[in-house]
Design a protein around this nucleic acid. Structure first.
Length: 496
RNA sequence: GGCGACAUGGCCGAGUGGCUAGGCAGAGGUCUGCAAAACCUCGUACGGCGGUUCGAAUCCGCCUGUCGCCUCCA
């Protein structure tokens, strides 16, 4: 009955989703390395997978969503003398490495909360799972998949016949690749570290059978995914740039340790560009989410709300690159406002009907709203590899014809069912709107009542053709970013 | 150098071999004391060159361009 199709990076095809266990879905997504503020790239990735999780739940699946927090400092350089990212940041900020991890973990969740990204069910920390990682490494050595040299442990890629199956690489390519470091200890240039020996100055270090050191940068995901989701998991997601080498190595580690397929469906979201350019610290265009929300960045002319950023992201597909620019955001913002106005109207109509028994509007029976068509259309689009862009387009297409009628107080006979469905879909799946959200600004003070007084005075002036008073009220309010709109049924105000 | 993706109307952005995606902007109109807002109407696009086909933006080849990965990165 559900024809959910997922594009599987492993096969490069859309495939119907079938869970390992009926009714359950285990999802693992690579989480952030917490040594800096989250930026647009994080937003794209985690909003994309937020949709995946929410849609699965909407379909009735019980989801376990696991997303790691990488708080072990991995090296900025694959060579032995590379600096640890966490250590580097802790030196810069004069904080303990774990203070850095905590600080940026909080900031990560704060910004994701603002974007309405659901928190994972489990957010395992890499530093909290060192024993699990060591156990997995031991197992790999026992099974002849890994070897130890001078306190370092490497994975032997030649022991994995299908190494490279996810990214479409072969070991021959890797061997001839010009940019692979020819590390002395490795048997094969593509071998990767499972455990690194810590030199004297290294801050984050643990005891292990191979001496003091720290885990390699792929093993945490393998160990934690296995611990919480089992040897084979339904879905593993992450950014496209992690496809190789990170995810390839995760597969090698898990399948080397368990001889069972690690992941059924691999999902990768595409990247974000800013004004057509790759976002990077070196390019000076890496804008953090907080800077977007506050507008405090030299490339931004004003703040952009998290809702608009989420909506903008959903207007493109997760497997397409998304180019951010202020003009594109502005378009999204206008469209977003347009759509939410319709949703507000629907909700308000239902409240009026339910509330005051006697109704101000009336049923427009000249035309039915085809709710079945809306439902099926949205499901069809979401089932097509979570195509939120198509779904939003369809939402506009179906709802727009009713906007004018709703404004005139006319509504379809099934307005309640329509509103209920749309509320669930927009609030629980897309999460771009929730009923009553837009007008619950300052309930502490009787702001609304005061405004009503002003509007009444102005209405009186207009009745008396006292245009100068009427216009003064409007102009002064406009200065405060409160706009007045006169309609047939009276005037209303809008903040912003 | 190796591997891979993408090139759609002013902008953003979906897309199935044949039928209007959608949004934003723009133009005209309705409404209005003026304005704003809102609503209605309007665009027939698919990088270039070949090929397959009755028919291709959609399939194949070549070319050009952009981007990503190959090194930490969502």
């Amino acid at each position: 009955m559900q024809n959910l199709q997922i594009f599987n990076t492993l096969t490069r095809k859309k495939e119907p989703f079938t869970p390992i266990k009926e009714g359950f879905a285990g999802i693992y997504v690579c989480g952030p390395t917490v040594y800096g503020d989250p930026h647009l790239g994080h937003a794209k990735s985690y909003v994309s997978f937020d949709i995946v999780v929410r849609y699965f739940r909407y379909l009735g699946y019980r989801v376990r969503y696991v997303q790691n927090i990488t708080d072990v400092g991995h090296l900025t350089d694959d060579a032995d003398d590379g600096e640890d990212k966490m250590a580097k940041q802790s030196r810069l900020e004069r904080l303990e490495p774990m203070e850095i991890a905590e600080k940026y973990t909080y900031r990560y969740f704060r910004d994701m909360d603002r974007l309405n990204v659901l928190r994972p069910d489990i957010s395992p920390r890499a530093t909290g799972h060192v024993p699990e990682q060591i156990a997995m490494i031991k197992k790999l050595i026992e099974r002849g998949r890994a070897y130890e040299v001078n306190g370092n442990v490497y994975y032997d890629v030649t022991s994995q016949p299908d190494y490279g199956k996810l990214s479409g690489r072969s070991l021959d390519e890797a061997e001839s690749g010009s940019r692979i470091e020819q590390s002395s200890d490795k048997k094969h240039p593509a071998d990767f570290a499972l455990w690194k020996r810590a030199n004297e100055s290294h801050l984050m270090r643990w005891d292990s059978p191979w001496g003091e050191g720290f885990p390699g940068w792929h093993i945490e995901c393998s160990a934690m995914a296995t611990k919480y989701l089992g040897k084979t998991i339904d879905i593993h997601g992450g950014g496209l740039e992690n496809q190789f080498p990170h995810h390839e190595c995760e597969i090698a580690q898990c399948e080397g340790a368990h001889d069972e397929p690690f992941v059924r469906y691999w999902m990768h979201n595409n990247m974000v560009t800013l004004n057509g350019q790759k976002m990077g610290k070196s390019l000076g265009n890496a804008i953090s989410l907080d800077e977007f929300f506050t507008g405090q960045h030299k490339l931004l002319s004003r703040p952009w709300s998290p809702d608009v950023i989420r909506f903008f992201l959903l207007q493109s597909h997760y497997r397409s690159t998304t180019d951010f620019s202020e003009s594109a955001l502005e378009s999204a913002e206008n469209g977003f406002r347009n759509l939410t106005e319709i949703l507000d109207l629907l909700h308000k109509t239902v409240l009026d009907q339910r509330g005051s028994g006697n109704t101000s509007g009336n049923v427009d029976d000249t035309q039915e709203f085809d709710l079945q068509k809306l439902k099926e259309g949205l499901h069809e689009r979401m089932n097509d590899d979570f195509n939120t862009a198509k779904a939003i387009g369809f939402l506009f297409e179906q709802l727009r014809p009713w906007k004018a009628r709703l404004q005139d107080g006319n509504f379809p006979a099934n307005v309640e069912e329509l509103s209920d469905f749309v509320t669930v879909f927009c609030r629980d799946v897309l999460t771009i709107w929730a009923p009553g959200e837009s007008d619950s600004g300052q309930n502490e003070l009787p702001f609304d009542e005061v405004m009503q007084i002003l509007l009444d005075i102005r209405q009186q002036a207009r009745k008396n053709k006292d245009w100068s008073t009427a216009d003064m009220i409007r102009d002064r309010l406009t200065e405060l970013d409160i706009s007045i709109e006169d309609g047939p049924g009276g005037s209303i105000y809008k903040l912003r």
